[in-house]
Computed example of a mutant assay.
Amino acid sequence: MHEITISTSDKPKLFSQLTTLLSEIGLNIQEAHAFSTLDGYSLDVFVVDGWAGQDIESLKHEVTKKMQKLEEDQWLPLHLFPKETGTLKHIPTKNIPTKKIKKLEKQPWCSLPKERPEKIGMNYIFNHVNKPISRNDVWEIEASCLKYEKKIASGSVSDLYKGTYINQDVAIKVFKNGSLNENMHREFSQETFILSKIQHKNVIKFIGACTKPSFHLVTEYMPGGNMYDFLHIQKVVLTLPSLLKVAIEVSQGVAYLHQNNIIHRDLKTANLLMDEKGVVKVADFGVARLQNQSGIMTAETGTYRWMAPEVIEHKPYNQKADVFSFGIIIWELLTRKLPYEDLSPLQAAVGVVHKVFA
């Protein structure tokens, strides 16, 4: 495991850019610590694993290449120090008075170092560390660090907001207090546990969760919206290359889940979200489950129009139920039609079971 420290002048979406950069290299972010000052500087510390061979020099090389590209885009010059220092440093600016250091929160993701940095610049520090990654509170964040911008969706048990968390655009799912019964507590715990254990370029990125004063679940914000609206409200016609791209990205995300013994159980176009670059990611793990040792489930869950017949009939099912839903998604992408669009959801369920296709 490695610790990477990056310090620079603070900029909008910087934290999001850095987490994306590390993910693109293939690193798994186990912890993230962020600090800011009142006069516009930022310090970000990441504890990561997933680097094959634990070779710090090759890791430094890969991160440096990515950071140089980011710096070119941001107009930040880079000054390299000798290799033996293990540090790449931007031309230093000015000292920061201690009184201007602003503590963001007490949790690990938002804490201050014991000693303030003497100077701020574009600085990368690589250290090999041995830290436990299975702590129960690793995903816990303080609700006070969340900033709300606007409500983007509302349901019977939760509301969804666009907001920010430490300079990163996020989606904040807020569970309504009236819906927090024992079952909902269990669902929240299950979704949080699954999201905290997975990381893939085609799966929604988990940021953290709060349990006080109410239940909040925070993920990356996907400005491209969902594939259902894209097809059926915006009426976008996908070219064949674009359609294949979407299908491949969804299949890669689902394959990753299945490799980790996770069944999504509610795959549909409304749960496929797009980022600013058009990359499609599988989202909404509210009913997802880890496959048990027997490899079968019987509970009926999901959305009828995309649901496999064995799920509707309460028969034993496994990961193949997701594959059926994926097939419906491909049909939907090709035809731009809603599955069983002329039938009610219950009629659609009967149609699926009896193989009556719309």
Rank of each mutant, 00 (worst) to 15 (best):
P241S: 13
T335F: 06
K201I: 08
N318V: 05
L160A: 15
E249N: 11
K151I: 02
L146N: 02
D39T: 06
V352A: 05
I172V: 12
K201C: 04
I152C: 05
A270P: 09
G295I: 01
E310L: 09
Q319A: 06
N183W: 10
V45I: 04
I6Y: 08
L78N: 08
K66L: 07
Y256E: 08
L80P: 04
D322F: 03
T85L: 15
F15I: 06
P339H: 09
Q30A: 10
L257F: 05
H264T: 13
N177D: 12
Q107H: 10
T85W: 14
P117R: 05
L18E: 07
Y317G: 01
G224C: 05
T98G: 02
T298E: 08
A209W: 02
R336Q: 13
K151A: 01
S156H: 12
A283W: 01
H232F: 10
Y161F: 15
D284F: 00
D55Y: 00
V45A: 06
D55F: 00
H2K: 10
L346R: 13
F326I: 03
D49S: 11
S134W: 04
E341A: 03
I4D: 11
L290W: 07
D169Y: 14
K11G: 05
P12C: 01
D266C: 03
A32S: 14
L14M: 15
Y41W: 11
P309A: 09
A349S: 09
Q291A: 13
F324D: 01
A349C: 08
M122F: 11
K60G: 04
A308C: 09
N167R: 14
E72Y: 00
N130K: 14
V280E: 07
G50A: 04
V356Q: 14
C145H: 08
P345K: 06
G40S: 15
F126W: 12
A349R: 00
N130P: 00
L18A: 04
H185C: 14
Q252P: 01
Q259A: 04
F206N: 07
G225K: 05
S189I: 13
I204R: 06
P117W: 07
E62K: 13
L333P: 00
E31G: 01
S158P: 04
E191Q: 11
L112P: 02
L243S: 07
D266V: 08
M297G: 03
I166S: 10
C110N: 09
M1V: 01
M274V: 02
T239D: 09
S179Y: 12
T239K: 12
V129L: 09
K355A: 12
M67H: 13
F193Q: 00
H128A: 15
F230S: 04
V138D: 14
G53T: 05
A358V: 04
K162C: 14
L160S: 09
H185F: 14
S134H: 06
T164N: 13
I6A: 01
A247V: 14
H314T: 05
T37L: 14
I207G: 00
L104S: 04
I330Y: 00
G286V: 01
W75Y: 02
I141H: 04
L338D: 01
V218R: 03
F126Y: 15
V254Y: 01
P132D: 12
A255P: 06
E71Y: 08
I4A: 08
A308P: 09
I133P: 05
S344T: 15
T298P: 07
Y221C: 03
L70A: 09
G155P: 08
L14I: 07
Y256R: 01
A34I: 03
E142P: 00
